[in-house]
Simulated assay, not measured.
Amino acid sequence: MSEQKSLPFVYQFAAGAIAGVSEILVMYPLDVVKTRVQLQVGKGSGGESYNGMIDTFTKIVKNEGFSRLYRGISAPILMEAPKRATKFAANDEWGKFYRKAFGVDKMSQPLSILTGATAGATEAFVVVPFELVKIRLQDRESGSLYKGPLDCAIKIVKNEGVLAMYNGLEATLWRHILWNAGYFGVIFKVRAMLPKADTPTQQTLMDLLAGSIGGTAGTIINTPLDVVKSRIQNTVRVEGVTPKYNWAWPAVGTVFKEEGFGSLYKGFIPKVLRLGPGGGILLVVFTACMDFFRSIQ
């Protein structure tokens, strides 16, 4: 992602972990709101139905308490360190691999997109079990069945089998491939268009802008896959029964056919509000950590 001096994998991993935890602490309530909206089939019914981001946020706080907005955060906290660490470290390592494979010295936008997509696929394998637990805990109906992340994981394995922890892997792969390709590809382009920063403050603001635009682009591209991933992972597997939401692209077709195109972007506002600025926070914190590590080398 950067043409600066490359650092060993352990530094990239540590910087990504710090960036990930910073982002989740600030933006997590929006993720809870996003998941609730995505899990609602159609327009919902009754007083518990959700009608947009503000309505969902208000009803969660009113009916379940403010702390519910942080329900299941321990799973993402545990996930964010390896997840974001893998994202940035894998992006850097795959960048080295592709530059060598294609015989080029510097990154280009197409190479940034390819590198980001491959890093996203790598990241997906790390996050699936954590995402599954998070989705189950965030759901209004299934969340009450579990005492916490560990209890949730134990019950999933007991009732559905060990492999159930990887339900939604294929959808998660697509989600992360598309988001990372958009994120890193757009960051490369925006950075190339911006003037050279004269001060650290200017560089931070430019990184915040580039990361936010990249996060927004990735979110626009991958939201339909995120919607179906949430539904796939919230489906309890029953032996001999084929789930309604099973594979990513057929599930996209099912949602489109039954609920319309707009339903493929359920939860988009809270998602983009989180991952747009969140993408900026990630890039700023990651870059700052890497600069610090370079200064002590």
Results as ranks from 00 to 15, higher is better:
Thr254Asn: 13
Asn234Val: 06
Val252His: 04
Ile281Lys: 01
Val238Ala: 01
Val228Gly: 09
Pro250Lys: 07
Gln233Met: 13
Glu239Gln: 14
Ala248Met: 15
Phe256Cys: 05
Glu258Cys: 09
Trp249Gly: 02
Phe261Met: 03
Leu225Thr: 15
Val252Gln: 05
Phe256Val: 02
Gly267Val: 02
Ser263Val: 08
Asn246Thr: 03
Val272Ser: 03
Asn234Cys: 03
Ala248Asp: 15
Trp247Lys: 11
Pro224Ser: 07
Thr216Tyr: 03
Asn246Ile: 01
Glu239Pro: 00
Val236Leu: 02
Gly260Ser: 14
Ile232Asn: 02
Val241Phe: 10
Lys257Gly: 15
Thr242Lys: 14
Trp249Arg: 06
Ile213Ser: 07
Thr242Pro: 07
Pro224Arg: 08
Glu239His: 11
Val284Ala: 11
Lys244Asn: 10
Leu282Pro: 08
Pro224Gly: 08
Phe261Cys: 00
Thr216Pro: 04
Asn222Ala: 13
Arg274Asn: 04
Leu225Pro: 09
Lys271Arg: 03
Ile281Trp: 03
Lys266His: 06
Glu259Ser: 00
Thr287Ser: 15
Gly276Leu: 03
Asn234Asp: 13
Gly260Tyr: 13
Pro277Val: 11
Pro250Val: 07
Ile213Gly: 08
Phe256Ile: 04
Glu239Phe: 10
Gly218Val: 13
Thr287Val: 09
Phe286Lys: 05
Ile220Asp: 05
Ile232Phe: 05
Ile213Phe: 08
Thr216Glu: 00
Gly253Asp: 14
Leu225Gln: 11
Pro277His: 12
Thr287Met: 11
Thr235Glu: 12
Thr254Gln: 14
Glu259Gln: 09
Tyr265Phe: 11
Phe256Arg: 09
Gly218Phe: 09
Pro277Thr: 12
Lys229Ile: 01
